[in-house]
């Protein structure tokens, strides 16, 4: 039995925003209901977002992707253009929870859960995604990279909702990959999650992102490791150096899923593997269009 609470189910965004200062948003409920049952969450008033019109909308054009605050992991998997517009996110959706969870779990809820193991966050960081935080007054854009302030703490104010996310579609000289290391392929919490973005111009890497999950209090970008790659002539040595640096930037803990040492080791191996894979998937000659 869940503890007692009130539940509002507004069908428009404004109404949900006006309840928010006093209530907790309920997206797919795949975190919140589990936490309420375990008495980790004690809210007495919930606002369900599932009735809000057009909240699950996905828009993709040649340049940009934007998704609504109610977009589910299944929506990502069922969006035909998503595999190209956000390869890492699409791959994260394939290894996320189980089917019933994916049908309900939202990307916004995943971000707000604040878990260092949240699987959509490394991909979204690797794509430089921006989130739209909206309250009754209006919307502010915050780069996801600046959103987290510590373990399960973030910049969202009590009266704000994530109403959308957006990022630029990677160009044809850019590869974007994600790998989730877990004990099973499905329905498992990440031991380590790594997302990388690499842009290639001839022999040079002109842009790099490396985002790491489950190896620190929040998901984060290994910026020192990125800096080793960006602008450099890419070689096996440079990739090894970047992978080593990513490992050094990780601050994992021992828990029931894996030891901190194993996680550190995995960060190095996976970063090296993904950057190498990304690099070789890109054309040597830059297609100038």
């Amino acid at each position: 039995m869940l503890s007692e609470f009130d539940l509002e189910m507004p069908s428009d965004l404004q109404a949900s925003l006006s309840s928010l200062p006093y209530a907790t948003p309920l997206g797919g409920g795949t975190n919140l209901l589990v936490d309420l049952r375990a008495r980790r969450e004690k809210s007495k008033r919930l606002v369900w977002l599932g009735n809000i019109q057009a909240f699950r909308e996905i828009k993709i054009n040649a340049q940009q992707v934007s998704i609504g605050g109610g977009t589910t992991l299944s929506d990502i998997l069922h969006s035909p253009a998503m595999a190209e517009a956000a390869p890492s996110l699409f791959n994260a959706a394939r290894v996320f929870g189980g089917q019933m969870v994916r049908n309900r779990a939202t990307v916004a809820g995943n971000i707000c859960s604040g878990s260092p193991a949240a699987d959509t966050v490394p991909p979204l960081l690797s794509l430089d995604a921006t989130i739209c935080l909206t309250n009754a007054e209006g919307c502010r854009s915050v780069p996801l990279d600046q959103f987290y302030t510590g373990f399960k703490t973030n910049l969202r104010r009590q009266d704000e909702l994530i109403t959308g996310l957006s990022w630029l579609v990677p160009n044809s000289n850019t590869a974007n990959l994600f790998y989730k290391l877990a004990r099973r392929k499905g329905d498992a919490i990440s031991v380590v999650g790594v997302a990388v973005t690499v842009t290639r111009e001839g022999d040079r890497c002109t842009h790099a992102r490396i985002a790491l999950g489950s190896v620190g209090p929040t998901v984060f970008r290994a910026k020192d490791a990125e800096a080793i790659l960006a602008g450099g002539l890419l070689s096996e040595k440079l990739i090894n150096d970047a992978a080593q640096k990513a490992m050094e930037q990780s601050k994992p803990i021992d828990d029931l899923r894996a030891s901190a040492n194993y996680r550190r080791h995995s960060v190095r191996v996976l970063t090296r593997r993904l950057i190498t894979q990304a690099w070789h998937s890109l054309p040597e000659k830059t297609a100038h269009t």
């Binding site: 209901l33 589990v34 299944s74 089917q99 019933m100 969870v101």
Partner: peptide, 15 residues
């Protein structure tokens, strides 16, 4: 038509 876990679904939301 969409499969969900009924243990994670509040009854009011299926009105």
């Amino acid at each position: 038509g969409e499969a969900v876990d009924s243990c994670l679904t509040l009854t009011w939301t299926v009105e």
